[in-house]
Design a protein around this nucleic acid. Structure first.
Lengths: 204, 204
DNA sequence: AAGATTTGTTCGTCAAACCGAACGATAGGC
DNA sequence: GCCTATCGTTCGGTTTGACGAACAAATCTT
């Protein structure tokens, strides 16, 4: 996105994520994230600090919102918590799903040759969408990049297809599996009639 | 990727037991990322520092590898560069990864009639495993409950199967999708030869 | 009930992240 | 030629993040 002109100044939004009117500092979010993830793993503050190799006093202050940790500190915490660091920094993934909730919703392409059925939309807590694909040979379908951090997984059920990053697609046959970044342009082109598959879109 | 991808933001360390005295790798990666992204956007160091609202001396040292910036600093830079912050911190994710039908780590059941191939093991941060299934008719396979909170999703590719909670399985045909709790006993029984499918095990 | 652990917090110190200014270097403009 | 502008780097000074120790409160032992 953003071929947009660099509007002289204004340090505004988190890139690639949504905006919140009153730009909330990064710090309070990190504080909340640390709390949340630590609670989730059921581990104590002392123990987490020990595993991360940082002083518990530091962690205490970070969780209490006084902070602004260095990347190394935050990285160590992310490792110890076994979460990607982005989950500590970036705002909780907004529901910017292209698809409205509802079962069996079919996303018809402009061309009728491409049909994606939403099987399980991303519920709160999970971070993935699951689609069933049914595609006919023809022009390759080029997908625009999704949210940053998105990863796509494809398992081809039947048929043959050229799949992957627009720059380096690979050919898949029935049973083959491929994964690639979903936040870069990518393609899906059926090479046989009634090519079917499953796509898991994972939002890290 | 038979061994899980380390992509989601953690270094190559075994989750669970780790002592990270110093986080090696993070700072140089940030240095490289900053250079790269700034070059890509074609703006000067001075200008970037101005837009990010930080001293150019700071940015200079960061790009030269001396550093360990605070998150706020790094965030400001990510905003100014119009990239998600993860692009500055995390190692570039690998592009396409393919597991051909027949390849991959196969989890053989006691009975040879059930074969599950691990396609994408749950990387730290993500919370799902993806399997390819190839099952022959015969005795139903009963899975013991997994971790609490686990949800299973199944998309049947070919064949026919009885799937679901042990108490109330349903019959699926090619293309059908089902989801059910994975933390309760559940079954999978192929009703036709060479029944194939995809299982997503989601660990909330 | 008293002692022993473990919980999370607060305080003083040190190292370093950040800043502003000054620096030599390179590239136009008169 | 010289002057000016911008490039990126380097040098003191200030701010502050991270550490270790000491702290009170809760929990487990004995």
């Amino acid at each position: 996105m953003t071929a947009g002109p660099p509007p002289a100044g204004l340090p505004d939004q988190p890139p690639g994520t949504l905006q919140t009117p009153a730009a909330p500092g990064v710090v309070p979010r990190i504080a909340a994230s640390l709390r949340r993830e630590r609670d989730r793993s059921g581990i104590s503050l002392t123990e987490l600090a020990r595993r991360a190799g940082i002083a518990k006093s530091t962690l205490s202050q970070l969780e209490s919102g006084a902070g602004n940790p260095s990347v190394e500190t935050l990285w160590a915490l992310a490792v110890a918590l076994e979460v990607p660091i982005s989950r500590l920094i970036e705002p909780p993934r907004p529901n910017v799903q292209v698809i409205r909730a509802g079962d069996g919703l079919v996303l018809q392409s402009e061309r009728a040759s491409y049909a994606a059925t939403l099987l399980a939309s991303c519920p709160p807590g999970a971070r993935r969408d699951i689609f069933r694909l049914l595609v006919q040979p023809g022009e390759a379908r080029v997908s625009e990049p999704h949210n940053p951090g998105t990863t796509e997984h494809i398992v081809l059920s039947t048929g043959r297809a050229r799949v992957g990053p627009a720059t380096e697609p690979v050919e898949l046959r029935a049973g083959d599996y491929a994964t690639y970044p979903g936040d870069a342009p990518h393609v899906f082109e059926a090479l046989e009639p009634d090519t079917t598959g499953v796509i898991i879109m994972e939002h890290i």
